[in-house]
Design a binder for these strands. Structure first.
Lengths: 131, 131
DNA sequence: ATTTTACTGATAAATATTATCATTTTAGAA
DNA sequence: TTCTAAAATGATAATATTTATCAGTAAAAT
C-alpha cells in the first residue's frame, strides 16, 4: 500500500500514510473534512492544506478519483477502477456500483471529443431514507 | 415563456424574467456568476441573492437542472428533458447529448433504491482543446 | 553526511454559496 | 381600482469550501 505513493513519485510522509490508510478500502466517498477530522486524531497538527495537497497530488497522478455528484462539496473515491455511483439526495450517501454498462458515443461525436472517462450517476432515495 | 413561472407557482418579477430569458434555450450551462453578470446589464441593482433565490426556486420546482459535473461550481441547465453531458476537462465547456442510453439497475438494487434520475457524463477533451 | 527536493502546517485569501431582514413588489381579493 | 397578504429584492453579513503563500522541516538522492 505505501508503495502506491512511491510508484506515483510522491514522498512518503506519516501524514500521507495516515490519509492513505483512511482511504484504503473506504467506500464512503469521504469529503476533505471527513478525512481531515479522522487523521487529526493521530496528527493533532494536521492541517487542511496537507489534506488538500495530498488529495490533489493523488488525484492528478490517478491514485484517487474526485466524485462530483454531491453539489455541496467534492467527495473522494479510492476505487480507481471503472465503476459508477448511486447517490441518495436525502442523506448524501454515495454507493459504488460495480456493474458495467455498455455506453458508447456515436463515431461522429467521438471524432470531436476524446472521451477519457464515463461517469454514470443514479440519483434517488436510498432504503434508509425511504423510512 | 413567462407562463412557466406562473405554472410553477412563482411570482413574476422583471429580474426573474431576465434570468429566464437568459436561460431560455441557453445550452452553455452557465454558472450563477455567468447569469448574474448578464442580468446585471439590464438590472444594475441585481444581487447574487436574487440569482440564487431564483435558481433554487426553479430547480426545486423542476424548471431547471443543476449540473454537478464541474468540480468548481454549480452549473445550471434549462433543458429539463432527459439528456446527458459531455464535459471538457480543459475548457470546462459542457455540451448536451440528446441520445438515449439504455441503462438499468438490477432488480435487486432497484428494490433498495428509488432511482429518480440517471446522469451520464462523458469527461474528456473537446475539439478546440485538442489544438 | 550532505544536499536537494518536496512536504507540512500556520495563516491568509479567494471563491462559492447561504442567511438575514428591512423595504418593495406582485397577485389576488374586495 | 384599491387593499392586503404573501413573496421577492437587494444590501449585507456569514458560512463553507478550496486555494495560495511561505518559512521551517523532513524525506530521498547523492
Amino acid at each position: 500500500m505505501p508503495e502506491q505513493y512511491r510508484q506515483l513519485g510522491m514522498k512518503l510522509t506519516p501524514q500521507r500514510l495516515a490519509i492513505l490508510h483512511y482511504l484504503s478500502g473506504n467506500g464512503t466517498h469521504p469529503s476533505a473534512e471527513n478525512i481531515y477530522k479522522d487523521v487529526l486524531k493521530q496528527f493533532p497538527t494536521m492541517s487542511f492544506a496537507t489534506v488538500y495537497n495530498t488529495l490533489d497530488a493523488l488525484a492528478e497522478k490517478g491514485g484517487l478519483k474526485v466524485v462530483t455528484v454531491d453539489p455541496d462539496k467534492k467527495r473522494y473515491d479510492p476505487n480507481t477502477g471503472p465503476h459508477h455511483h448511486l447517490y441518495c439526495i436525502k442523506c448524501k450517501n454515495i454507493v459504488d456500483i460495480n456493474k458495467e454498462f455498455k455506453i458508447r458515443l456515436s463515431d461522429e461525436m467521438r471524432r470531436d471529443f476524446d472521451v477519457l472517462a464515463v461517469c454514470i450517476e443514479f440519483h434517488g432515495i436510498c432504503r434508509k431514507c425511504k423510512k
